[in-house]
Design a binder for these strands. Sequence first.
DNA 1: TATTATTATTACTAATATGGTAGTTTTAAT
DNA 2: ATTAAAACTACCATATTAGTAATAATAATA
Lengths: 138, 138
Amino acid sequence: MRLSTRARYGTRFMLELALNFDQGNIFLKDIAKKEEISEKYLSQLVIPLKASGLISSSRGAHGGYRLAKSLSQITLKDIIQVLEGNLSLVECVKNPSVCSRVSKCVTRDIWEKLDETISGVLSSVTLEDLVNLQNKAN
Amino acid sequence: MRLSTRARYGTRFMLELALNFDQGNIFLKDIAKKEEISEKYLSQLVIPLKASGLISSSRGAHGGYRLAKSLSQITLKDIIQVLEGNLSLVECVKNPSVCSRVSKCVTRDIWEKLDETISGVLSSVTLEDLVNLQNKAN
DNA sequence: TATTATTATTACTAATATGGTAGTTTTAAT
DNA sequence: ATTAAAACTACCATATTAGTAATAATAATA
């Protein structure tokens, strides 16, 4: 039950965009350096983030990335969902057809409850909250 | 962020022991058949469960497995912790020395909070609860 | 229009985790 | 002695994770 590096790195990338929301386009290269994440690897994570409409980008000189929504409109759930695909702890919760035992499986009910709890936490935290936390820490 | 098959299969194994708590030793083979889990694979999961003192076993004819504690004393957290090792979503939460950015990393605070939430849910569910759920369903 | 700095795309790779299978040994009841 | 079970040991195939590398497309600007 580990959070993937995709999700963790992607969240940190989004946080950096949030911290520089008013600066216009930010270079991926700069974020990679500041967050100590491989530039090439980060450039893979950015693809689904852009496709989902959470960020937008400009090519060429003076290009870069920027958030496509306001800080309070982007939750951790949005970000992690995009980077991990299915947020569910167990496949059968979202997709019951993968297991014939679903109807008689009590443990599934628990995993479902746990899924809901996790989603609740993740959707309650926005980029705005992270920025506030960051500012308070300094 | 998936729950491993180890954790899922192991939980179902423990639930079967709980459902047959008063029957004495239960054969792993029978549980494997009923739960449709590979017998050999299940026999690997049973090793840490025994080592942790959650179950005990007898060899030879009329051998088998049984719970080593009462139903209300075994939580899902106990089981999953044994089978997955570290319950933490992110390594740095339990083991800060793995990352030099820990002191300045705001996202880590969120992962820590999420860890606590998950632990709370898992430690609130006992085998007794699962048995009650199962009985109510029938 | 040539240059430069950036994102975008594609292809590959090494390491690790997952989900097993197979065979042998030990143990204990009958 | 036989039998039925757990215990132990050694593999193995596949998927996932976490990258690296090289190249193409794009857009500002000198």
